[in-house]
Amino acid sequence: MKSAYSPIFRLIAGRLALGILSLVIVSLVIFLAVSMLPGDFATATLGRSATPETVAAFRERLGLDLPWYLRYFAWLGHAIAGDFGQSFSGRPVGQIIGPRLLNTLYLAALTALVAVPLAVGLGIVAALYRNRLPDRMLSAASLASISVPDFFFAYVLMLLLAINLGLFPTLASIRPSMGWDDKLYRMALPVLTLTLVILAHMMRNTRAAIISIMSRPFIEMAKLKGESPFSIVVHHALPNAIGPIASVVAINLAYLVAGVVVIEVVFVYPGIGQTMVDAVRNRDIPVIQACALIFSVTYILLNMIADIVSIVSNPRLLHAR
């Protein structure tokens, strides 16, 4: 028993180790990027009239007077504990991004709830009607959605659903005091846009996963038994495709990371993406570092989950090495 399972555990352990290594490297990159700040950054931020003393004090506040590895460990230790230091505006970074991070997670979770069943369903339809009209239409739509900028979707939906039909509010400015139904109503447009952004890719991958399984011998067996195409997909293909589909879902949720930034700005949604863009405009480095770290960690973790799911769900990987 143990010998049969140990290779898969070794694979998973290897993938976990790789994930942790990339987390360390990413945190190091994000941290060191700040050390590459051009020399006059302090002067540039404080203005030309800054005295040498204020510049020195500013550098000290950034911790630029200590050796880099000490600063890195101090920064990382605090960041893991949720303390990202002081923003340049004087407020603690944690206080700025804490509630907004929750909002973004809420948005992403709702999007996943809508997009995942829809994408998997459409992917199955496309695979069933392979190279026929529904499939052609779906693949044309997915080419279009890959080519179109995210903000185009956002504004088209805003124009059609919010302004012409008056179904939803144009802006998704939610406040903590609102009830959940009011929040949901205001978030409808961003959720819909994000769904469109990730739908095509997820659908295409689901289609590919199902089609690759449909070419296996056991599917042919089921066909020869005279089962209907629907029953073949639901009873034979789908159970075997769950692993690949789960990993597709995880990878595509990682794509949400980029989509969320643009969509939050369009709909003025108080999330962490918008916070990061504002911080970039004001060059508020501690806030940027915190946001970049959160986004990257999410991205790496989702990719790692995708890989582990596909390792666990594919028995043939047992013999991969």
């Binding site: 990339s22 490297i25 990413v26 990159v29 994000i30 990027a33 700040v34 590459m36 700040l37 051009p38 990682a254 990371v257 980029a258 930034v261 990061m276 863009v277 911080a279 970039v280 060059r283 480095i285 940027i288 570092q289 946001c291 970049a292 986004f295 990257s296 991205y299 790496i300 990719n303």
Partner: peptide, 21 residues
């Protein structure tokens, strides 16, 4: 290259733009 690719593109670009202008 692997480690650079493990940071989402848009996020990395935003961070570098903030630093270099």
């Amino acid at each position: 290259v692997d480690s650079l690719m493990s940071i989402p593109d848009l996020i990395f670009t935003l961070m570098l733009l903030a630093i270099f202008g």
